[in-house]
Amino acid sequence: MTTLKLRTLATVTAVAAASMLFAGCTTTRPGDTGTSSSSRTSIDAQVDASLSKLYQTVPGSREMVSKAAGVLVFPSVVGASLGVGAEYGRGALRTGGRTQAYYSTTAGSIGFQAGAQSKAVIYVFNTQESLAKFRNSKGWTAGADATVAVATIGANGSVDTNTIRQPVVGFVLTNVGLEAGVSVSGAKITEISL
C-alpha cells in the first residue's frame, strides 16, 4: 500500500473510532431532548469562558482578538486514544463580538498513545480574506486550506509580533495554560446547524 492510502485508511479508522467513542460519551439519555436554543446558549457561554481564559493567560491576546476579522473558538476539544486517536469538539465563530455560526472540529492520529484529554482551540482570523475563505469553504482543514501559525510568546511575555502578522493564528489552551509546540494541522472544521 502506498503512504497516501495508508494515511487515508488511518484517518478513516480514527474518525470511525472517534464516532463510536463520542457516541458513548453523551450526557443525554435516549428519552431526553435538548433544544437548539440551549445548545447555542451553552456553547456561547463556554466560548466566553475560553476567551476570558485566553485573555488572562496570554498578554496581548485581547487586543489581537478585538482587531481580528473573526475568531473561531472550540471551548472543549476532547481527544481519546488507544493506538489510534481522535478528537471532537463544537464551537462558535464570532465577528465583532457576535456569534455568526456554529462549527464542529474533528481530527485523527496514529501512533503510540493512550489516554484522554480536553483542550480549548482558538483560531484568530486576522484578515478579511482569510475569514472569507474559511466562511466560503464547505469544510475547512487547518494546514491544508490555510496555514495556521500556532501562537508563540515573545521575550516580553506577549504574543510574538511575527505571530500577529499571520493571516490565521491558532491558540491551544489546556488546564495549565497555553500549550507550546503543538500542531493544529489536519483538524477538519465544518459548519453545523443547532
Rank of each mutant, 00 (worst) to 15 (best):
G139A: 09
S37R: 08
G157P: 14
I153Y: 10
I189Y: 10
S39V: 07
D48H: 02
L82H: 08
I164L: 15
I122C: 06
G83R: 01
S130V: 06
P59I: 00
E63M: 01
V184Y: 13
V15Y: 15
F171C: 09
D145W: 11
G34I: 12
E191T: 12
T35E: 00
A187L: 13
G96F: 15
Q128L: 06
S66D: 01
A120H: 03
I43C: 04
Q46I: 00
S183N: 08
P30R: 06
S81W: 07
V182C: 11
V77I: 11
A120Q: 02
Y88M: 12
T190V: 13
T161I: 15
I192T: 11
G177N: 08
P167H: 14
A49K: 02
T163M: 06
K133I: 06
K138N: 10
G79S: 07
R29S: 11
M64E: 00
G170L: 12
V73A: 03
K53Y: 05
S81H: 09
T190W: 02
S37E: 04
K188M: 11
I189R: 03
A23F: 14
S42C: 02
L93A: 05
M20P: 05
S66A: 07
E129R: 09
S52W: 00
A10K: 10
V77W: 02
I122Q: 02
T11K: 13
V71H: 03
A86P: 09
I122V: 11
A187C: 09
Q117M: 07
T11E: 11
T8M: 14
S38L: 06
A144W: 10
A187Q: 08
T152A: 14
G31Y: 10
V148S: 04
G139K: 05
D32R: 04
S193R: 12
F22W: 12
G31K: 07
G115T: 03
T33Q: 05
S61L: 01
P30S: 08
V12M: 10
K119N: 09
A68E: 00
A114F: 15
T106I: 15
G70I: 01
N175E: 11
R135P: 02
R135N: 03
V148K: 03
V169A: 07
V73Q: 01
T95N: 08
S39H: 04
T41H: 05
C25I: 10
E179Q: 15
G143K: 04
S81D: 01
A146W: 06
G108A: 07
A18Q: 12
T2A: 13
A18K: 14
M20L: 15
K67C: 00
G177I: 14
